[in-house]
Each structure stands twice: as structure tokens, then as C-alpha cells.
Computed example of a mutant assay.
Amino acid sequence: MDDAAVVDARAGWRATLETTAAKWRPTVELGALFAGWYYFSIAFNVYQKALLKAVPMPLTATFLELAIGSALVAASWGLGAKARPDVKTSMLKPIATLGMVHMLGNALTNVSLGKVAVSFTHTVKALEPVFSVGLSAIFLGNIPSLAMCASLVPIIAGVMIASATEVSFNMAGFLSAMGSNLTFQSRNVLSKFVMTGDDMKKLDYVNLLGVLTIASTVFALPLALAFESSKMNVASIVAGGMPLAVAGKNLFMAALCFQLYQQLSFMVLSRVNPVTHSVGNSLKRVAVIAASVIIFRNPVSTTNIIGTALAIFGVILYGRVKKQKSA
């Protein structure tokens, strides 16, 4: 083979490799986003549970984590890592509305994580589709099909079975997780009403999360002061046996992981359809439940596992039914 033929062969191989790389790059990038979303979600729940187990101040933790998140958002805008949104006066009311609900959803989730096992909180939060269907029917007039209603049955049955056999069951923890479902799904319904202005539509997913984080911080402070101000001292913080430095580390890491997994979730949503994202979120919940059981060594019965699996199966089934309806 002469030199010209060798050069042509190398050029052909290079072109083939570049074409193959370009073809697979979106899939690899999406896989990396999913992996990061799952990893930081698991990490957030681990750090958060460890913190709240020793320092039972969920509302204060919510405020501080949102404040850290707000600082990270501001830094990303200030350093040019993300273009700063042009927030106009007309946007303040819808941002405040969604920010309030966003804050309540996070606060109630933290209350639940502090009261019961991580696995149980996320099993109860598998009921999100039930709240989504109900609120959409009431406020948006979206009447669910018979198939969609049928897909909710295993979710409800699974959560009931898991709740009845949950060793760490606590009514406050259960109701807080249910309240979190209600507030987060209310946020989704409210967004249909308040995200209609031309200025609001200009916000991309990441900047929307950023402005909601800042608004949520403003609302979280008076709530924390109203209910936990008496505990805001060093003695109360170290009473659970966790050194102050470790508590501070867990708080910062929980806040960082929370922001990262939320942003990665929005980045995934920007690349896939909502149904695929919903199924991915269900599988993420499985990963969080499994990791928390292993890390915290929570006692679980066979019946509890069956209930959890049934609920997750129902969520995935709901996603498939919803996909067929939207096709």
C-alpha cells in the first residue's frame, strides 16, 4: 500500500470514528445526566437524613439549604456560568406564588425525612401521580381515562401495604410526605396559570429553578423563626451527638447536592419528554430507597418490600398510560 492509500485509509477511519462519536454523543451525555441526577439525589437524602436525625430542625435546615442554594445561583450568574435572567416587575407575583409552594414542598419533605425512614418518605411520595391526576381534574378540567385511573390503583395499594408494615411509621412523617405531594403537584398545576406571560416564558428550566430558590429562601426564614427559633443555639444543635463541624458539613453538602440534582433533573427534562422524565423519576426513587436501606440499615419486611415495589410498578404503569394518551 503506497503512502497516498495509507493517508486515505486513515482519513476514512477518522471520519468513521467522528461520525460514530457524533451519533452516540447525545446518548452518552443523556446517560451522564441521568447518572448525575440519581447520584446527587441519593447523596442529598443521605446527608439530609444524617443531619435531621441528629439535629431535628427541618425548617431551619430548609431555610439554610435554600440560602446556600441562592448563593450558588447568584455566584453562577455573577461569574457568567449562566446568563442572568431579566426579572421584570410583572414576573414578581408568579415567582412569589411558585416560590411559596416550592418552599412548602421542600419543608414538608424535610419534616418527613426527619420523622421516618428515607425509604418510607419516598414510598409515600410515589403517590405524586394520584395528586397530579386529582388536581388536574379539579383545576384544569383534565378528566382522567379509565386506564389512567386503573394505573393509580397499584400505587395506592402499594403505599397502603408499605405504610401498614413500616417499622418507622410516624403519623407526622406520613402526613408531611403527603403534604409534600400536595404542594409539589399544586406547584405544577399553578405553573399552568402563572407561566403564561411572555416574560415568564423566557425563563429556561435552570433559571426558573434559580429564581424559585431565591424566592423560597425569603419565605422560609419567617417560617423557621416562628417554629424553631428557640432551638437556634449551639447547645440544641450538638445535643443530638453530632459535632458542630460535622453538622455544618452535612448541611452544606445536602444543600449542594440538592441544587445539583434539581438542576440535573431540569436538564434531563429539557432533553426528553415529560413521560420519560416521570419514569426516570420513579426509577430514581427506587435507587434512593435501595441506597437508604443499605446505608442506614433500616429494618424492612418482605411485605414492606412488596408494597413499595407495587407502588413503584404503579407509577411506571401510570407513565406508560400517560404516554399512550399523549401519543
Rank of each mutant, 00 (worst) to 15 (best):
L251F: 12
S176I: 03
A35F: 12
R14I: 11
S163F: 04
I95K: 01
M267P: 04
L51M: 12
T196M: 10
F193E: 01
S119I: 07
G78Q: 07
L317Y: 14
L208M: 15
A50I: 08
L317F: 14
A50P: 05
H277Y: 13
R285T: 12
N110W: 05
F227L: 14
P85Y: 04
A21D: 05
I295E: 00
A255P: 12
T303M: 15
V116M: 13
A254G: 07
T27K: 08
M200F: 10
K284W: 02
L190P: 06
T123V: 08
P222W: 13
K192G: 09
L256A: 13
Q48H: 04
A117F: 10
E166Q: 14
V272W: 05
D204I: 02
V293F: 04
L256M: 11
G307R: 02
I289T: 02
I294C: 04
I138W: 07
A75Q: 04
S119A: 15
G280L: 01
G307F: 03
I305R: 02
G114K: 01
I294D: 03
S70K: 01
L203R: 08
L223N: 09
I289M: 01
V46Q: 08
K325W: 08
M171E: 08
A50T: 14
T303A: 15
F219D: 03
V6H: 14
M178E: 04
K23E: 11
I306N: 14
L127K: 00
Y38G: 05
P56N: 06
S163N: 11
F139K: 04
T89W: 08
V116A: 05
F227D: 06
G36N: 09
L30S: 10
M232Y: 09
F193I: 00
R84E: 13
T27I: 09
T303S: 15
M171L: 15
K201S: 08
A239V: 03
H122M: 10
I312K: 00
P222N: 08
S278C: 08
W24E: 09
Q263S: 12
H102M: 11
I42A: 01
L104P: 04
V275M: 14
A35I: 00
S278N: 13
L146H: 11
T97P: 05
F296N: 04
R297C: 11
K325N: 10
P129L: 04
V73N: 13
P85L: 02
W77C: 01
A15Q: 07
P222I: 02
Q324T: 08
Y318H: 12
L51I: 11
A5P: 06
M100Q: 07
N281E: 05
P26Q: 11
D198R: 13
S236P: 06
K322S: 13
C149Y: 12
D204L: 00
A157V: 15
R14Q: 14
